[in-house]
Design a protein around this nucleic acid. Structure first.
Lengths: 215, 215
DNA sequence: TAGATTGTTAATCGATTAACAATC
DNA sequence: TAGATTGTTAATCGATTAACAATC
């Protein structure tokens, strides 16, 4: 029903930022906020915030602003946070383990249920209560547990084949940390590629720009 | 000199993707590529690629396309990859260690020189040859080594103060993996915030969209 | 009631695409 | 020379900002 209007990519990439800021405000016991104040805190315009939110409904109130807790719930609804997606993690190397141990999956409404690796020494161990299983058990365990999301932390050369295998296992979304990009068009399910190097290169670019003018 | 035209944010965020793709093509021994072929492989339009690159100069040749190796060098120039930035890493927890061990800093022309932590058991250890130092030595070591970039992998509540301290130590850019966003306007140096949760929430959004229509 | 602030419409601005002369 | 493909200009498209009536 909220699917009628097309929501642009730009809007979608701002929504998680709104959500983070609102969760922080809620923690600080802020009960209400105007688009004006929210904009100031986030470095955006009030107009843009109202425009973005109005894609999904009228969540505010004239003369009052937005109720922080209510808006959080609305955003969780938009993202499906409440529906608690189940995730499997592929590759329990340094990065995979760092995610299992440190990343707050529940913030996004995601719950890791198992990790997989080919490394003998890792299989059987658990990290924050999540067991590492042997990769050959993937089909078996997915058939039983029906995970929604696969988190890929494996070397780049294995990613393409593994992603296809996971889609056959029924996962409906892929969160890809490997160095090789995956494409939704190839796989048939939504993909988010996380490329650390892109971010670091952008930083280097901006540093170069910041350095150049005055010197 | 390439600083005359203003280059939009959208262009800057595509440049690292071009660079990754070209590096991959170079590995596969591809010597030349047209904007048309590059666009097809990346899911963009040829026009956009030519427009983007022309912000920085005429790197192609009519009737031929782009020389892959030459274009790689041009992009490295744009990002300052060749100048080899030196980085310190703050917080040698799971994520910090995962970066030190796995992430290919040199791909971006960055070289980690030291890590810092307050944890006694970590101080003195090395990861991939990078020593973990005590945090109280930060000013001393920065005074001696003049790092360009700080990589922040510390808990959210410490980030703001630590970032300011690093800027006083002379770092010119901050790569922030903590859950709290930093802003260039507050710090006076370029910042890249990496928010895993934003990416995962976007994935959840797209999964919800993909699921809704047919069912 | 008066003040504040929304949701929405219209105006502006910027980014992407299309077209094509230039030229390898 | 003919074919291919660039860099750039103009046209289109979309996203952001400004303005304001509606209303809490």
């Amino acid at each position: 029903m909220e699917n009628t209007k097309h929501v642009s990519k730009a809007v979608i990439s701002r929504l998680p930022r709104y959500y983070r800021m609102l969760r922080r405000l809620a923690e600080e016991k802020v009960k209400r906020i105007s688009s004006k104040d929210l904009a100031a805190q986030m470095g955006l315009t009030a107009s843009q915030i109202r425009q973005d939110l109005s894609c999904f409904g009228g969540f505010g109130q004239q003369g009052y602003g937005y109720n922080v807790d209510k808006l959080i719930v609305e955003l969780e609804c938009i993202f499906g946070v409440a529906s608690s997606q189940r995730a499997v993690l592929l590759g329990a190397g340094n990065l995979g383990r760092a995610l299992l141990r440190n990343f707050d999956f529940s913030f996004c409404g995601v719950r890791p249920i198992a990790a997989f690796d080919t490394e003998e020494d890792l299989v059987g161990r658990t990290f924050r209560g999540i067991p590492v299983c042997a990769l050959y058990e993937l089909e078996l365990i997915c058939g039983r547990e029906h995970p929604d999301i696969a988190v890929l932390c494996v070397p780049g050369d294995q990613v393409q084949a593994l992603a296809a295998r996971l889609v056959r296992c029924g996962v409906r979304g892929i969160w890809n940390f490997s160095s090789v990009s995956l494409r939704e068009d190839d796989l048939g399910v939504p993909v988010e590629n996380v490329h650390f190097s892109d971010s670091l290169m952008r930083l280097c670019y901006h540093m170069k720009e910041a350095g150049a003018p005055q010197e």
